[in-house]
């Protein structure tokens, strides 16, 4: 009973907030709705018995990806009139994408109701005494080890690519040398002098 209520609650909020991502006028509000959608999707995962995936969804998407999103959107200076100016121009392309997506949805539902693949049985959680993390770990590190390593290499290449793209040597820039700062002692920087009256001193 409580699972059913929770499911419909999460599902409704996911759909409503996903719609609000598009309809919200302020881009920052859009990102906030997106975060709400991620969060409730994590709730749905939790109900499906995939608590590990749910937590990862929150940590990775809500905690890291959406923060960066929010960062970028906040920095942008957005002119709302300009944003809506191209509406008619982009309408045909947008309508085309929408029609393709709708057709795919109808197609998928049709195939599912024809009973070709037993999707429902696959989606049901497999009940074992082992915890979620253990099961995923055992699969990843045995059966799918090659794919797992390949994904790791792809990420590594992407990381190196990002560093190469943004890293540049600039001349004439003063940078902090932390070890030099830490090595510096009072006797290197100060001098104790006792000048006589009217003599002054040389710095």
């Amino acid at each position: 009973m409580i699972q059913l209520i929770a499911f419909y609650l999460f599902a409704t909020i996911v759909i409503a907030s996903a719609a609000m991502v598009i309809f919200a006028r302020n881009p920052v509000h859009s990102v906030m709705w997106l975060i709400l959608a991620f969060f409730n999707a994590a709730g749905l995962m939790l109900l499906a018995g995939a608590e590990f995936i749910a937590m990862l969804l929150v940590i990775v998407y809500v905690g890291a990806v959406a923060v960066l999103f929010l960062f970028v959107v906040m920095m942008l200076d957005i002119d709302f009139a300009e944003l809506r100016a191209g509406f008619v121009r982009y309408l045909p392309l947008g309508a085309l994408v929408a029609i393709i997506l709708a057709a795919e949805l109808v197609f998928a539902v049709g195939a599912w109701s024809a009973g070709g693949v037993d999707l429902a049985a696959r989606a049901a959680p497999v009940v074992t005494d082992k915890s979620n993390i253990q099961q995923i770990g055992e699969l990843l590190y045995t059966k799918y080890i090659f794919l797992f390593e390949a994904a790791g290499i792809v990420l590594l290449v992407a990381m190196i690519g990002a560093i190469v793209l943004t890293h540049r040597q600039r001349g004439g820039v003063r940078t902090q040398n932390i070890s030099a700062q830490n090595r510096r002692r009072p006797e290197d920087a100060t001098r104790l002098v006792d000048p006589g009256v009217g003599q002054g001193m040389e710095l």
């Binding site: 608590e51 590990f52 937590m55 915890s131």
Partner: peptide, 10 residues
């Protein structure tokens, strides 16, 4: 829950 530490991180 058995993902307690992940919950705290999240």
């Amino acid at each position: 829950i058995n993902v307690g530490l992940l919950y705290i991180l999240a």
